[in-house]
C-alpha cells in the first residue's frame, strides 16, 4: 500500500507525463481502465491551465492561431507547472518560454507582446491606491526637495521593447477595426501600463520618462533619477514630467530619503 505522499507523487507524475512508466496499480479499474480514468483528470488539468493562459494571453493566441497556442500551452504546462492554487498567478514565464522557441524566430516580437499582456494581467488585479496629495507635497521644504523619493502605483508596470509591441497589441484587439498593418521598421516603444481606477490603460512614454520612472521605481531619489533622465535627453523637463505622472496617478506616494 503506498503512503499518501507516494500516491500523490506518482499521480502527479502520471498527470504531467502520459508516457510515464510508473503505473498506478492501486487505481481501481473495472469496465473503464485506470489509464482512461487518469486521462479524465489529465484532460481537465491541461484544459483548465490552458484556459488560464488563453485568458492572460488573448493577443498571442490571435497572433499565432489557436492550434499553435494550444500546443505551446501544453509544452509550457509540462515545463512550468502551476505553483499556486490561484490560477490567476499562472503564466508568468510564458513570454520567456515563447522566447526559447525556434519556431517564433520570424516573429521575434511575440515575447514582448506576451510581456505586455502579462503586465496588463497583473495590473488588472493589483492593489488600488489613492492619488498623491499635492498639498502635502507642496509643504516639503525646498531645501530638502532633492531627497524626495516617489512610489509608483501598485497597479503600474513599465515595459520597453525594440518592437512596436503596443501597435501590434492594438491592431489585434477584438474591437479594433482600423488599418491592420504594422510596420516593424518604426522601431521600439517604451510603455506604461497603469490602472488609475478600474480599467488598465496602456500609455506610450518617452525614453527619458521611462528612465526617470524606472529609476524612481528602484528607490532612487528625485535628484539621481533626474540625472539619469538628463543623460538620455538634456532637455528633460522635471517639473512637467512630475506634474504629468502625479496627475495621471502613476506616482502615488512620496517620502524623504533618510
Amino acid at each position: 500500500m503506498p503512503s499518501l505522499h507516494e500516491l500523490q507523487s506518482a499521480f502527479a507524475d502520471a498527470l504531467l507525463n502520459p508516457d510515464t512508466t510508473r503505473t498506478l496499480s492501486y487505481v481501481a479499474q473495472d469496465k473503464i481502465s485506470r489509464d482512461q480514468r487518469l486521462f479524465i483528470y489529465r484532460n481537465h488539468v491541461f484544459s483548465s491551465l490552458t484556459s488560464a493562459l488563453q485568458e492572460a494571453y488573448p493577443t498571442i493566441e490571435r497572433l499565432v492561431g489557436e492550434a499553435f497556442f494550444r500546443s505551446a500551452a501544453r509544452a509550457y504546462i509540462r515545463q512550468h507547472p502551476s505553483t499556486s492554487g490561484d490560477l490567476e498567478q499562472y503564466g508568468d514565464r510564458f513570454a520567456d518560454y515563447l522566447d526559447s522557441l525556434k519556431q517564433v524566430d520570424e516573429h521575434a516580437y511575440l515575447p514582448d507582446v506576451a510581456r505586455l499582456e502579462w503586465a496588463y494581467h497583473r495590473v488588472y488585479f493589483a492593489a488600488d491606491a489613492p492619488a498623491l496629495s499635492t498639498e502635502s507635497l507642496a509643504k516639503v521644504d525646498p531645501s530638502q526637495q532633492h531627497r524626495l523619493c516617489f512610489g509608483l502605483h501598485p497597479a503600474s508596470q513599465l515595459l520597453q521593447s525594440p518592437y512596436p509591441s503596443l501597435r501590434i497589441w492594438q491592431v489585434n484587439q477584438k474591437a479594433y477595426c482600423g488599418d491592420q498593418t504594422v510596420d516593424l521598421s518604426t522601431g521600439g516603444n517604451y510603455l506604461l501600463v497603469l490602472r488609475p481606477q478600474l480599467d488598465p490603460e496602456i500609455h506610450h512614454i518617452n525614453h527619458d520618462e521611462y528612465i526617470f520612472l524606472h529609476a524612481l521605481s528602484c528607490d532612487k531619489n528625485i535628484a539621481d533619477s533626474h540625472d539619469l533622465a538628463t543623460n538620455i535627453n538634456p532637455e528633460f523637463d522635471l517639473t512637467s514630467c512630475l506634474q504629468k505622472f502625479i496627475s495621471n496617478k502613476t506616482l502615488v506616494t512620496f517620502s524623504l530619503e533618510a
Binding site: 503512503s3 499518501l4 500516491l7 507523487s9 502527479a12 483528470y41 491551465l49 507547472p81 502551476s82 499562472y90
Partner: peptide, 19 residues
C-alpha cells in the same frame, strides 16, 4: 490539488484510508 510544490488546479481524489 498539489504535491512537491506543483499545482494541478483540480480537485484530485484522496484514498479513503486511516492515514
Amino acid at each position: 490539488s498539489s504535491i512537491d510544490g506543483k499545482y494541478f488546479n483540480d480537485l484530485l481524489p484522496l484514498p479513503y484510508t486511516e492515514e
